[in-house]
Nucleic acid binder design. Structure first.
Lengths: 109, 109
DNA sequence: GACAATTATCGCATGTTTGCGATAGAGTGA
DNA sequence: TCACTCTATCGCAAACATGCGATAATTGTC
């Protein structure tokens, strides 16, 4: 029964964030969390499509099902675990690196 | 755990960070080299001790208890979630960056 | 030794992610 | 149109992380 809420995925959310960043610093702070989620979702989607894999194919490599992959590529999903990220990375012959960078998104004043 | 969407514990840390703008870019490279290949537990412990905080003090900043911090700094514990990592990072005036690097485990000479 | 501060570990309740199937929507091609 | 592929979303059970207090264990100082 949905008519227009479909396909609102990482690409649309990316455009939204890109439009918001650069407007105001306050907005950027608010969007920070979503930006981080979006990065992960977009990275997974990019890596998967570059590997020419469908969600179901990647799911089989990872050892899960297609719906799980779709959930991970959802930009609004912020429940990522490092275990799952590493499983995804391993299936795509990558490794996950975690870095603690100084300051959340600071522009030099 | 509460959803990150409705959580606002990091607002004080964000406010602190806003006063520290200006020296993020140069420190990024140092942090990258120092922490590129360290384990998550060691990173957290290192950041905390460098900030001269006890586990209980960090726990209060993060919004949890000391035992949780101790668990996160346990090297055998690999069940980290990105939400918790971001909370830790925010309390330490840092941000978490996730990168997918090529190769399973490349050892720099 | 005694004392305080810090950290490690235990147990349990609660909340969240995962696993999985089922199904709907979107796109393509015949 | 139909058939097929791919993706999004729903619902539920199981597995897992967190929240929290309590309590050892460790470390340092006197």
């Amino acid at each position: 029964m949905r008519s227009q809420k479909t396909q609102k995925r990482t690409s649309d959310a990316l455009a939204l964030v890109e439009a918001l960043t650069g407007k105001s610093q306050e907005m950027a702070d608010l969007v920070e969390q979503e930006q981080a989620n979006l990065d992960i979702a977009r990275k997974i989607c990019e890596l998967r499509t570059k590997a020419k894999l469908s969600q179901e194919e990647l799911a089989r490599k990872v050892g899960t099902t297609q719906s799980v992959i779709s959930r991970l590529e959802d930009a609004d999903y912020d429940g990522h675990s490092l275990q799952m990220l590493r499983r995804i990375a391993a299936a795509l012959e990558k490794r996950v690196e975690i870095r603690f960078l100084p300051g959340p998104k600071l522009q030099p004043a």
